[in-house]
Design a protein around this nucleic acid. Structure first.
Lengths: 258, 258
DNA sequence: CGTGGTATTGACAAGTCTCAAGACGAGTGG
DNA sequence: CCACTCGTCTTGAGACTTGTCAATACCACG
C-alpha cells in the first residue's frame, strides 16, 4: 500500500492527484486562495499560478535559506515543515495538508527560515509574490483570501503550541490525532479512519516528545480501546474519550482501563 | 517603580508613550506597517489608523470570540495573548511588544480566537480591515508591509514552538530571555538589562512549565552566574553561556557551577 | 531469505509536577 | 511607624512521567 494521508478510495483527491488542473476544477478550490471567487476571477488566478510537477516522497520543496519567491498551496499529498536548530536537531513546525498554504515564513526577511519536505508524492501550486503584488485586479480579489489563509496558518500554529503544552504524552498524541482528524474532515475525507503520512519520529519532533514516548502513547490509547492502529494506519474508535484526553487531563483521567 | 518592559530612561519610548501621535513621528514607524513608506503614503495611512486610548494594566484589548474588525499594532507597553482551553486553563500564546502586530487570528473566521490583555499601560493603533481592503492606494503601499508583518508573526510562533520543545526548564527560560532580549535590541532598548512586564505565572503558561519550575530555572541560571535577577528585574551577564543553554543542551551542560 | 528502516518494549536515571509551606514586597489602615 | 493583607515569588520533598540506552519485533523490498 502506498503511503497517503488520505484514503484513496475516496473520490475527492483521486480526481486531481498529480495531474495538471486548472483552478476552476481543482478539488481544493474551496479551501484554497480562489475560494469564493467568480469563475472569471479564478481564471485570472489560473494565469498567475504555477502548477508544479509532483514531488516524490522525501524531496525538498523548500530548503532552509532559500530565497523567497512565492507562496505555495498543497494540491495533493502531504508535507512536513521543519527548522534546523543550533544543535542540529530538526524541529518539525508543521504538517501541511491539501488546501493549506505554506512558505510565507520567507516573506519577512526574503529568505525561507523553514524547509519543507514531501512526505509522499505531493503536488503544489505556486503563486509568485511579485505577480501578486503587481497585478492589481487579482490582488484585489485575492487579498482577503490570502490574508485569511495567513490567519488560518497562524491559528494552526497556536493549536500546535497548545498541543505541545499538554504535559502528558498521551494527551499530546490524542490532540494530534484529533487535529489531523478534524483537518481531514474539512476536506471531506474520513475523520475516523486514515493513514498517517508521517512516521513516529516526525510526530515526536512535532510534539516535542521522544519517539518512544509517542509509541507508548499510541499503545496506551490502543489498550484503552480509544483507537486501533497498526503502524501508520489509525482508526479512531471513541472520539469522546479522545477529546477528554486532548482536553488536558479533563474529567476522567486515563487509567489502565482494560 | 512602575512596571515597564523597557527602561524608561531610554528616549525612544518615552517620546510617544500615551500621547496621540501621527505615524510620521511615531517612534515605532521603523518597525510598524508604515516602515519604508514615503511621508505622503504615511499620511494616507495616518488617516486610516485609529489611535486608541491607552489601556491600563489588566484591561482586555481583545476578548476571545470578539468580532474581527481590525488588525492592531502596539505603540507602547506590552500585551499577552491567550487562549482558554477546554479544561479552563489559559494558554499564553504570545507576548506582544511595541512594533508588533496582533489580532490577525480573527481574520480566518471573522471572530477572534485569542484574547489580548495589557500587561502594563499600553497604547495600540488599529487599522480597520474594511478600510484597508477598500482604499486601493494605501492597500498597494501597505500590502507588502502587512504581509511581512504577518510573516514575522508566523516566525515568532515557530520560535515559540522551538522554545517549548526544549526539554529542560532552564533551557526554555534561557531561550525565552534571549528572545525577549533580542526583541528589545531591535527596538534599540537595552538587551542585557530590562524589567519583565509579565509575572512568573504568565511565563510558565507561555513556556508550558509550572510556575515553580520557572522560578527554579531562574534560580539555577542565577547561581550559575549567567544572570542576576530580583523579581522581574533581569540582568543578563553572560550571553554566550545563555545561548549555550538555549541551544538545547549544547556543548557544555549546566552543572551546579558555583 | 537477508537487509534496512521503522516500530515496539523494557529498565533505569533524570527531570518535572504537585502539594505545601514560607519569604518577600507593595499597599492599606490604624 | 507599625501591623496586616494580598499577590507574587521562592524553596522543599515525594510521586510520577519522560528521556535515554538497549534489545527486539516488524514490514517492505530486493
Amino acid at each position: 500500500m502506498t503511503e497517503l494521508a488520505f484514503d484513496t478510495k475516496q473520490p475527492a483527491l483521486q480526481a486531481c492527484a498529480g495531474r495538471k488542473v486548472s483552478c476552476t476544477n481543482c478539488c481544493m478550490r474551496k479551501l484554497c486562495i480562489v475560494a469564493g471567487m467568480h469563475s472569471d476571477q479564478m481564471e485570472a488566478v489560473d494565469q498567475l499560478v504555477e502548477h508544479w510537477h509532483p514531488s516524490p516522497r522525501g524531496r525538498h520543496i523548500i530548503r532552509e535559506g532559500d530565497q523567497f519567491r512565492q507562496i505555495l498551496i498543497v494540491r495533493s499529498g502531504a508535507i512536513k515543515a521543519y527548522q534546523t536548530l543550533e544543535n542540529g536537531d530538526e524541529q518539525i513546525t508543521d504538517f501541511i495538508l491539501p488546501g493549506d498554504v505554506f512558505g510565507m515564513d520567507g516573506l519577512a526577511t526574503g529568505r525561507h527560515i523553514a524547509g519543507a519536505i514531501a512526505l509522499e508524492t505531493t503536488s503544489v501550486c505556486a503563486i509568485p509574490m511579485q505577480c501578486m503584488l503587481e497585478s492589481t485586479g487579482l490582488a484585489k480579489a485575492a487579498e482577503h483570501q490570502v490574508l485569511a489563509l495567513f490567519s488560518e496558518s497562524l491559528n494552526r500554529k497556536d493549536a500546535h503550541v497548545a498541543m505541545i503544552s499538554m504535559n502528558k504524552s498521551h494527551e499530546r498524541v490524542a490532540a494530534f490525532l484529533l487535529d489531523i482528524s478534524a483537518r481531514l474532515a474539512r476536506r471531506k475525507l474520513s475523520s475516523s479512519h486514515f493513514v498517517l503520512s508521517m512516521n513516529r519520529s516526525d510526530i515526536s519532533r512535532y510534539l516535542a516528545l521522544s519517539q518512544e514516548s509517542v509509541s507508548r502513547a499510541f499503545a496506551k490509547l490502543t489498550q484503552a480501546g480509544i483507537l486501533a492502529c497498526s503502524g501508520r494506519q489509525v482508526d479512531l474508535l471513541d472520539f469522546q474519550a479522545l477529546s477528554r484526553y486532548a482536553g488536558r487531563t479533563g474529567p476522567a483521567d486515563l487509567q489502565q482501563a482494560g
